[in-house]
Design a protein around this nucleic acid. Sequence first.
DNA 1: ATAAGTCGTTCGCTGTACCGAACGGATGTA
DNA 2: TACATCCGTTCGGTACAGCGAACGACTTAT
Lengths: 185, 185
Amino acid sequence: MDPTKPPIDLIAAALRREREREKLSLSEVAKRAGIAKSTLSQLESGAGNPNIETLWALAVALNVPFSRLVEPPPTAPRVIRAGEGPTVKSGQADFIGTLLATSPPGVRRDIYLMRVEPVGARKADAHLAGTVEHVVMISGRLRVGPEDSPVDLDVHDYASFAGDVAHGYEALAPHTSFALVMEHR
Amino acid sequence: MDPTKPPIDLIAAALRREREREKLSLSEVAKRAGIAKSTLSQLESGAGNPNIETLWALAVALNVPFSRLVEPPPTAPRVIRAGEGPTVKSGQADFIGTLLATSPPGVRRDIYLMRVEPVGARKADAHLAGTVEHVVMISGRLRVGPEDSPVDLDVHDYASFAGDVAHGYEALAPHTSFALVMEHR
DNA sequence: ATAAGTCGTTCGCTGTACCGAACGGATGTA
DNA sequence: TACATCCGTTCGGTACAGCGAACGACTTAT
């Protein structure tokens, strides 16, 4: 979500899109949401500046999560082959991260394919507060987590932890790789 | 996000929490957001019903994604060992899904570890509109995607596609496994 | 001490988001 | 044809969100 420009147009579009997807009339949605249909009419036309209660009621009436009304539309299918895609390398450790998915423009969650070799540990500083990291092991063996309480993971293991405290990644075996979902909230 | 009860308390708490995290004064935040500090004062005290423009400006001023102001707080560290965790089995294909992470209470994204054997294909019906699926290959070989345009994936490949159209998973090799991030928006 | 700078709260005032009613247009049905 | 119902839009009235000013409480400097 772009934090720089007003979301009113997005909301207007979303309201109409979601309503038509549910095949509901404007009047019906207004009734379900307990708001005047005139209000909804104006909102859908892009005029107005709804307050939270109104928008919330509409999200419920349309049976969609709230943020669906305040975010841009979906993405297109997309494949990144092994070895392709934008990579992030680290000198600190033998380490390659491939950015697989990022939700533009104001990132909510990124997905990386990470490959680490057992040459020293990778220390990651704390990220933005509220970040949560999810690890799904693909191959090798990994020591990961907050500095004071790391865990060791094997293939198919999963771990998640808050990313806003100092933490690190250390490969314990060659050709260690894992999927990393980094969630910013 | 719980779509049943009003978010105003959540917002009030979030506003104060994020402001204190950034170590900013109420006056400062109000100034940055271009709103009256009296307004912010009332919002933080839980009184009021802000409109979208106001909330948006505050999100920008606090340097957090908008939805951070409308959602419940973070999660705790957590490990699920290979073989552990709640699983979903399918009779339709030789198929095991392990639910690794779900963001309570109104799900935004789930993370699964999926294991499939090459015995017929798994047809997944369309999910809720707006769902997006992300696949990171762990082992084996997988045919996946919309019915009319599937792709074949090998280890370390990645693919994403809209989950709200009919699509399927089919293992092309034994012991096929992958991480699946299912995103509801 | 007192003046000047914060801080966050409380107070009328004003603009406006929301409401309800009335409207014109489609469609259905006696 | 007239008479229902729907639909979505447009129009005044009103309650209230947001504003600026003033407030008391606290720090820091003079």
